[in-house]
Design a binder for these strands. Sequence first.
DNA 1: GGACGGTATGCTGTAGGCAGTCGACGAAAA
DNA 2: TTTTCGTCGACTGCCTACAGCATACCGTCC
Lengths: 245, 245
Amino acid sequence: MLLSDQAGQAAAAKIPRPATLRESVIEAIQELIVSGQLKPGQHLVESELAELLGVSRQPVREALQQLSGEGWVDLFPGQGAFVHVPTLEEADQLLAVRTLLETESARLAAKHAGEDGVQRLRALCARGIAAVESDDVEAAVATNSELHALVTALSGNKVLSELASQVARRVRWYHTPVARQRGMASWEEHTSLIDAIEAGDERRAAKIMREHTEHTRASYLAQREKEPAEPAPKPVRRRRPRQLG
Amino acid sequence: MLLSDQAGQAAAAKIPRPATLRESVIEAIQELIVSGQLKPGQHLVESELAELLGVSRQPVREALQQLSGEGWVDLFPGQGAFVHVPTLEEADQLLAVRTLLETESARLAAKHAGEDGVQRLRALCARGIAAVESDDVEAAVATNSELHALVTALSGNKVLSELASQVARRVRWYHTPVARQRGMASWEEHTSLIDAIEAGDERRAAKIMREHTEHTRASYLAQREKEPAEPAPKPVRRRRPRQLG
DNA sequence: GGACGGTATGCTGTAGGCAGTCGACGAAAA
DNA sequence: TTTTCGTCGACTGCCTACAGCATACCGTCC
């Protein structure tokens, strides 16, 4: 069976199925939220989103269900969906959880990662450093995410890596508008992390990752301290102003 | 404002809202899965579930979306929903994650729990021991879950406790059919855990919880080793046999 | 006899529509 | 002027209906 052998090769770049509308809508709404076009607390009217995206209400509803499961929006029965409002406290707790998950990931990665994995880590790290040096913030952030994702993947624990990636996405949303990036220091930490993983030193890898994520957390809190945060505009059901004409 | 004062008192037993159909359906399907009426790998036909529960396809679809987000079912675009098939490897990884989350919870609980929290823990523990002594397995399992949930709640980190409770639910599903309960030994560990929390000894609390959950994990694996696991009936889309008549 | 292609079937994905419900606004009463 | 009640508008929750598609069955060809 030649084909099944190839198919067995991990990500054999599955044919880019036209995906269901629901999935497309999920990504679209996530993008709208992360990019700030949909603001925290905003009432998401199904019919409006449907029209905006050119689909019917059903896929939008299903997308909102799923997004609520991942913490992007809050669903109030009978009232509809509202973009989740991340409080300072919650962000802190989320960052704590991320630290926990990624620290364990790093430890396991040091335990299990092979030569191949380390190579890929180094490649990503190089790309990240290059991005920082050329002041390409966007690329640096993206590469940073990829690197962390790869570390969790190398842990060998799929459940863990999936959970971590979910948490990471939310962290990115909370974090992005506040502090853009910690710059080169972050990538030096990445480098020593990879060294530890290559050496198979679990303790050191865990320690570095813990400190690394705690740095991010500290910088986040410091940033947020300055701006007293918006006065939480009470997420109330919006009423469409009278359509005249 | 008298009313709002009362409402502020935590769980003032919110009026049992008639809940949306979707939520009822979610619980119903979860129950069907946990109780084994829906077997792993089984194809969940929307219209059948709808008829079975006496609702239309829409609430069923939305419930399946949400359940897929929590790992109870797998959604294959164009093919439908299948009850998730927990492999041995995945169960092990899930238990590892649970250990991680609950250990951290225990540590934080030792750090933050007050007199009141400890009291409630002791009460639950007493109930659990009583249940074991009277051979009430059902009650013992339920109380066990409650106790662990309370520990995570006492951690003071809502994100963490929510994640832990989700993981715990899945663990219970994987675990229940295999090993019913470890009996009294488990509750002795609970007792010393509470002692550590009361003393505010973070390290000890974490250590006990880690060992405690690792015991569960070991017993699970031991149980599963014996039965070579079902031969994984290839989750294929079922086709209703021809209706004659 | 085995592989291939055509056909049928029933399921999923999506759309549209109706009733129930929640919130806002305005009028009437204290 | 403040509180309370009634009405209106709009949105959600759910149902029904249709189009597209994936799979299984079956006849045909090699």
